[in-house]
Design a protein around this nucleic acid. Structure first.
Length: 608
DNA sequence: GTGAAGGGCCAC
DNA sequence: AAACGTGGCCCTTCAC
């Protein structure tokens, strides 16, 4: 497939090229780089295309090479030769085109491209259409579908896209004709991909959620570039404590277990791999302990009181987990160029719309202060930390329109105590700690579709008592009960459900398999709630992004219902007000019958 | 050696 | 599969 493209490598040609494209409503947009990490590599090419007319802009970060095989050569000086690309006046037309919101830039996984433009060209991409996110939305959680550009092009256009040049050497002094053509083709195809995708987006009624997602790309790109500061001294201190505890508990456990091993050798205690469930289980059985089918903590807990070795194993597991998952490895993610951690956030990490995070996962840092206090504001800065209070329960109350549940929120009292009072039919002041605890577990469990047996085992109630408490709970909130039942029933009828923004999830279950149906039904109850919570967070991120643009505030982390912003110490109060406002406005766009509550505070450390 | 699967556990 | 939803990371075990 031959396509028309033009290679640009001087200021005059760039100006002309940008003029040609500046009235297009949509532009295919792509970049080629020498690394996946903008802090490590160079930005080599920026491609823009209206579908017919494609410009490949060579920023030529490597010195020396001036020729591109098979192409005419430009007369001017290479962009990079004039120093930092961010200040190069020859690139002004490109920056203007990219940062304009009049031309929607269509890119596949636009977070990647916008990060490079932000860091290397110093400008924010104005308006984004992400075909990767659009494809994910259309697939509605079908995990079997792939969403690479080649897969999406194949699926929506029926064309085969050759991606073999993707991993070629983009730092080469001379790019081959094949490389440049590949680069041009990836940008040139985007308008057509968007057009086809958009038809599906329209018929599946996904316009609102796609807008939500597209508007969130740049805020997330910036958050990844911002990174978060981790005090390595503090982290090492905690890590050393854990290592010492692991060694100590390991020794003690080893001693206790060896008593149950048959062949105690002449050479001393036989070594057991304490991280092997199989070996540890064998040893515990050898001690005469009746072992349950799994050795997971919740199963072992009841045995811990009677058997010291089990208690020791649980202690060991806790510190072993801490020193493996939350130890040295996290320090390796600190980027030398910034001294900060730049994790990867997947915007549609779950079909519900929740983010996922990796390398490292900043959403699973233990809640204990010993860990969180290591994530800090650098000198002269503050962290502003805000989280939605019981957002999922408020969404459930709003969606189900349950009078009593809404009342529990509107009253503004301690929410779990208020539900306890309603469920047990007593005055709020008379609620015992036990009753409040039951109500709290129920409130949380209900959004996951908890059953009586699970509730019984987590509270210590008998099956009958648990069933009775659940019955009372749902009798107190009849509209909520009805909403959840309808959600479960719709699995078989509609075979799909949606969040507040219209995010779609289709069900995949085996009609004849009860547990498969059951799990689909629990998902159907949970997805609209979890999904709307994600919608609200994403909307808040966009509103926040626009509100802090010209301030010292920077987004540094998000954890499902929490937003962490770093700013100059002097701006902390203003930032807190801005953040709270953005989150409240976002909530109000999806929830109207229940007040949204945001807890916000300012600190030097990421702690409550 | 490498990679997938299984078990376990951290977050919300 | 904890008959409670969504993720990622670490370790062992087992197949290639």
């Amino acid at each position: 497939m031959e396509i028309y493209f033009q290679l640009i490598s001087d200021g005059a040609s760039l100006q002309k090229a940008c003029d040609e494209l500046k009235n297009e409503p949509y532009l295919g947009f792509d970049v080629e780089t020498t690394d996946l990490d903008p802090y490590k590599g160079d930005l080599r090419l920026v491609q823009l295309s209206n579908g017919q007319n494609t410009k490949v802009i060579d920023l030529r970060p490597v010195g020396g090479g001036r020729k591109v095989r098979g192409h005419g050569q430009s007369k001017g000086t290479a962009f990079k030769d004039k120093g930092d690309l961010r200040n190069n006046p020859d690139l002004a037309p490109l920056r203007e085109l990219l940062s304009s919101s009049k031309q929607v830039k269509i890119a596949h996984n636009a977070k990647f491209d916008t990060k490079w433009v932000r860091h290397h060209l110093g400008c924010e991409v104005g308006s984004v259409y992400d075909t990767y996110l659009a494809s994910l939305l259309v697939s509605a959680g079908d995990g079997d579908r792939r969403h690479g550009l080649a897969d999406v092009v194949q699926f929506f256009l029926g064309q085969t896209l050759d991606k073999s040049e993707q991993v070629s050497d983009w730092g080469a002094a001379e790019l081959s004709h094949s490389q440049v053509e590949y680069a041009a083709r990836d940008a040139a195809i985007m308008p057509e991909v968007r057009a086809k995708l958009d038809e599906r987006i329209a018929t599946d009624e996904l316009k609102r959620v796609l807008t939500l997602e597209n508007e969130c790309v740049v805020p997330i790109a910036e958050m990844e570039l911002n990174g978060i500061y981790l005090d390595t001294g503090r982290w090492r201190e905690q890590l050393d404590k854990n290592k010492a505890a692991q060694a100590k508990f390991g020794e003690e456990l080893q001693d206790m277990l060896s008593a149950g091993v048959a062949q105690a050798s002449l050479f001393g205690r036989p070594e057991i791999n304490l991280d092997s469930q199989a070996q540890v289980t064998d040893a515990l059985v050898g001690l005469g302990i009746p072992m349950p089918d799994t050795t997971r903590a919740w199963q072992l807990q009841p045995l811990a009181e009677k058997y010291p070795a089990v208690a020791k194993l649980l202690e060991y597991r806790t510190v072993a987990k801490a020193s493996s998952s939350f130890g040295e490895n996290i320090l390796e993610f600190i980027e030398p160029a910034t001294g900060r951690i730049h994790a990867d956030f997947r915007q549609i990490g779950a079909p519900t719309g929740r983010f996922s995070c990796s390398n490292p996962n900043l959403q699973q840092i233990p809640h204990e202060a010993e860990y969180r206090r290591c994530f800090m504001a650098p000198a002269g800065k503050k962290l502003v930390i805000a989280d939605y209070s019981q957002i999922e329960l408020r969404i459930l109350a709003d969606f189900s329109d349950d009078k009593n549940f809404i009342e529990a929120f509107v009253s503004g009292q301690d929410f779990h105590a208020a539900t306890a009072a309603q469920v047990f039919g007593i005055a709020a002041a008379d609620v015992t700690p036990d009753q409040r605890s039951f109500a709290k577990r129920l409130n949380f469990g209900v959004v996951y579709g908890i059953g009586a047996s699970r509730f019984a085992s987590m509270t210590g109630l008998t099956q009958t008592q648990a069933e009775d408490t659940l019955r009372k709970y749902f009798a107190t909130y009849p509209q909520m009960d009805a909403w959840l039942r309808t959600a479960a029933n719709n699995v078989k009828i509609e075979r799909s459900t949606r969040s507040g923004s219209g995010r779609l999830a289709r069900f995949n279950f085996d009609e004849n398999d009860r547990s498969s149906l059951g799990s689909a039904q629990r998902y159907a109850k949970n997805m609209p709630i979890q999904g709307t919570s994600a919608d609200i967070l994403k909307r808040a991120l966009r509103l926040l992004h626009d509100d802090i643009r010209s301030t010292s505030a920077k987004l540094v982390n998000i954890v499902h219902d929490e937003i962490v912003v770093e700013c100059d110490a002097a701006d902390a109060d203003q930032t807190a007000a801005t953040l709270e406002s953005a989150m409240l406005r976002a909530g109000a766009e999806f929830v109207s019958k229940v007040p949204i509550k945001v807890d916000v505070h300012t600190a030097d450390e990421w702690t409550k």
